[in-house]
Amino acid sequence: MLELRLVQGSLLKKVLESIKDLVNDANFDCSSSGFSLQAMDSSHVALVALLLRSEGFEHYRCDRNMSMGMNLGNMSKMLRCAGNDDIITIKADDGSDTVTFMFESPTQDKISDFEMKLMDIDSEHLGIPEAEYQSIVTMPSAEFARICKDLSGIGDTVVISVTKEGVKFSTRGDIGTANIVCRQNTTVDKPEEATVINMSEPVSLTFALRYMNSFTKATTLSNTVTISLSSELPVVVEYKIAEMGYIRFYLAPKIEE
């Protein structure tokens, strides 16, 4: 038996909107510690890891570990039927081939339930090693989204370079080149407006902008984004989910031919 009641149902709606175009089908894993997902995009270039900790739910019952295969497009269609202020409860019985999403309006005057068919998904679960990153940049998520969108009008790839001067986003295309440098800026009124660079070694890596732009659909989940870079590793683009967990996108770099 599984029953998860999320008062801030909009978080789940936003999570789905941010991953449904990247991943078609995924297994949601439910254990006593939380509700999580790990899935690769169909070309195995990017990976998304989601964690919603059990403490973030108003009510969290998961009698035994469960893995529920869902089509994210279909799940998104159902969650779109929930109001932004609705409380969302996810329910499933042991061994059932369906999951139920229940939506309650804040005033309890409208209660809906949607039952969705589960599917068997044979997905490869990858071990993500703990890593010390050479450069970690935290910046306003809206600023990062703006940069990715702007650069994708000019080129297909972005070179992210971190030095002690700042973080530089560069692209090159048929019409010309672009460089955007964000300097460390911690003297702002609000902490979420700061750009903070923690660098142990300078790093420069190239990534496909198409994926970066897809990751920025999670911008609504957090005011800040953390970009972790190491020369030998995929980049991690992390959006914290208030008091609940995170959504992390891993993207393999492009290398010179």
Partner: peptide
Amino acid sequence: KGVQLNITEFFRSA
């Protein structure tokens, strides 16, 4: 424009 690496080249099957 460079070779796109796969994520599976970095993370092993768990």
